[in-house]
Amino acid sequence: MATGLATKRLMKELAEIKTKGTPPGIVLLNAVALDQWVFLISVLGDETIYAGETFALRLKFPNRYPIDSPEVTFLADAEYIPPLHPHVYSNGHICASILGAEWSPVLNAVAVCITMQSMLASNKKKERPEGNDRYVRSAPSNPKLTRWQYDDDTV
């Protein structure tokens, strides 16, 4: 898809967030550029093991968005820690099929946030993925360059 269309689509999504807002537990923190946004995500309710925690999810949109999926990571910096989750590496990379093989151009930024939120909501065990340290040591900075294997997960 042409760059102009990606720009148009992103502006449309931003405008919609501005007028209609975001679902509960999801807040647009900033958009440092039209193609790079950060959302704050928290899981609401008492059932969750993440009660009281807030995570920052960064979306970078490629030129061919929405044909190509956005690059999505949890921020790992002085301020934010990626959630302890069997599909989230300590560098913020996420193993979720919707961000790779299952991406569809009919999805949008808010849909990605909702999926991440429900991935956290359904989790019962706070742990890092197997081989976290090994992966993080050699991981490319862009998680889309990693060859992901989606095993048990339904997200």
Binding site: M11, K12, A15, A31, V32
Partner: peptide, 14 residues
């Protein structure tokens, strides 16, 4: 990008 940028205020939709 400023979230109050005029481009975002003028909705693209009819």
């Amino acid at each position: 990008m400023d979230l109050n940028h005029p481009m975002l205020l003028a909705s693209d939709d009819p």
